[in-house]
């Protein structure tokens, strides 16, 4: 790694490798920043979940921590009124479109959404927004994998995991509210050429893709 720099996060002095993304530096130092779409070993981050906002001294508005590279003398606050408002709004929007069924969900207890709600004291059930269920069928046609698109938060981790495994079965299709992770021709996973490696289920931060019991 390159040279070490010193930064301040929430008043804590941290030394980090220059150019590292702030999100990972903070997480390595036990400072939790909510995040869904980012992955440590990927070169690029989609920065699409809009949950990892932090306040940076000298910047007019909060910035996503997953796109902020660490530099000498950086001063960061992970919480502020503006950050909390942004995260709360983003989280509520995600939850308005997420089928809440924690009790029967395979991700219950290790779900990133539950973790964020707990860390930021947010409610899982949206207060101000109506719940818009996608109403799509659950797909359990592939060996070892269950896919419930109604729980998907569109982070894209499964797609990247699928590409890394060398299969490239999954991808984003359609647009806007209809956007969904699907296969070529919207085929069920079982007919799509999926090998059932379940890398996607490993990658899924929520319960949308899970291993079949």
């Amino acid at each position: 790694m390159g040279k070490q720099v010193t930064i301040t996060v929430d008043g804590k002095t941290i030394s980090a490798g220059e150019g590292e993304m702030l999100l990972w530096t903070a997480l390595d130092n036990d400072i939790y920043i909510p995040h869904l779409c980012s992955e440590r070993n990927e070169k690029e981050t989609p920065a699409s979940c809009r949950l990892c906002f932090v306040e940076v001294a000298g910047r007019p508005a909060p910035v996503p921590a997953c796109t902020l590279s660490v530099s000498e003398g950086l001063v960061v606050k992970t919480r502020s009124e503006r950050v909390d408002a942004l995260v709360a709004a983003g989280f509520e929007l995600l939850m308005s479109n997420h089928r809440l069924d924690c009790k029967n969900c395979p991700a219950n207890g290790k779900c990133e959404l539950q973790r964020i709600a707990k860390a930021r004291k947010l409610r899982l059930k949206p207060k101000n927004l109506p719940i818009l269920d996608k109403g799509l069928p659950v797909d359990d046609s592939a060996p070892g994998i269950v896919y419930d698109p109604n729980k998907c938060v569109l982070c894209g981790r499964c797609i990247r995991a699928c590409r890394r495994s060398g299969n490239s079965i999954l991808g984003f299709t359609s647009r806007g509210f209809e956007r969904v992770v699907a296969t070529f021709g919207d085929l069920p996973l079982g007919e799509s050429g999926c090998q059932g490696c379940s890398d996607c289920a490993e990658a899924c931060p929520v319960g949308a893709l899970s291993k079949q019991a």
Binding site: I169, L170, T173
Partner: peptide
Amino acid sequence: PAVDVYGVITFY
């Protein structure tokens, strides 16, 4: 991947 082309087709 074919699914990327399908993604573009369904996007527009």
